[in-house]
Design a protein around this nucleic acid. Structure first.
Length: 260
DNA sequence: AGAGGGATCTTCT
DNA sequence: GAAGATCCCTCTC
């Protein structure tokens, strides 16, 4: 079962996409994506693949340390195609954490731990590991090296599909109110972003983000080191000396992060 | 603005 | 049997 399925009305037709920043090349109706996505595999190339030109490929993940990947993901755009209506949600990644595998006491793969549940962390770079936490929420990681290292996505800044995100978040709400969330609070946490973008262990776990029609990354902005703040990670105090290492990264002055 | 607690269930010991 | 990479409501200052 999902986290509390409230009697929420389905969202109305979403409004026109808001072109929130320079990462957006052109306007496009969401229905266009549906059509092209459906036929994008195994079909003639006459029509260009649904994959956008600026989609990040496996190259983006290669030859990067886990820490470098966590930083490089800042500013990139997380895209999620919903089924069955095919609407695409987009949001800029603004906060990440690096988990350094076998040596990292805060990592699920500490000491080389390997179970069926943790298998995605040992799969090809860019594999999504989506797991449930606290019995009711999900968190999403991307495998960084196929050897247990991973990057946790902690916060995103919504770009496209804000209405749908509001609706998805409202479904998980405990109270009956239908007041929209303030935009900065829509996806400013690891589980909030999963709720807002309909990411859970049944639909996205083990999917590779460089090779999926459900979820992918697009080139956003490059964030220079000067604009990246490093802090200790959140919620892992039990990990002793590893709890204080500066392995959390966020975009300086960004309003959409989970915690200052 | 910050502290405290409840909801809820998978995973491994 | 216990812990957990959370969120959100409520209470207090």
């Amino acid at each position: 079962m999902k986290p509390t399925a409230r009697n929420k009305p389905k969202s109305k037709t979403s409004t026109v996409k808001t072109v929130a920043n320079s990462g957006v090349k052109r306007k496009r109706k969401s229905t266009e994506i549906v059509v092209s996505d459906v036929h994008s595999r195994g079909h003639i190339k006459a029509k260009r693949s649904a994959k956008p030109m600026n989609r990040l490929s496996a190259d983006f993940f290669n030859n990067k340390s886990c820490v470098d990947l966590a930083k490089a993901l800042l500013g990139q755009i997380l895209c999620r195609r919903l089924s069955p209506n095919g609407q695409t949600l987009k949001a800029t990644i603004v906060e990440t954490e690096a988990y350094l595998g076998a040596e990292d006491k805060a990592s699920a793969t500490y000491n080389g731990r390997r179970t069926e549940h943790l298998e995605p962390l040992y799969m090809t770079r860019g594999t999504c590991f989506v797991y449930m936490t606290y019995g009711m929420y999900h968190c999403m990681n991307l495998s960084a090296d196929g050897n247990g290292n991973a990057v946790l996505l902690r916060a995103v800044q919504p770009i496209d599909g804000l209405d749908q995100m509001q609706s998805l978040r409202a479904k998980c709400r405990k109270t009956g109110t239908d007041t929209p969330y303030k935009q900065t609070l829509l996806a400013n946490g690891p589980s909030k972003l999963c709720m807002a973008m309909d990411i859970d262990r049944h639909n996205i776990n083990k999917v590779n983000i460089t090779d999926s029609e459900l979820i992918w990354l697009e080139t956003g902005s490059t964030v220079s080191d000067d604009d990246i703040v490093c802090t200790k990670r959140i919620g892992i105090d039990r990990a002793k000396e590893w709890a204080n290492k500066p392995l959390r990264f966020y975009i300086k002055d960004n309003e959409y992060i989970s915690k200052k």
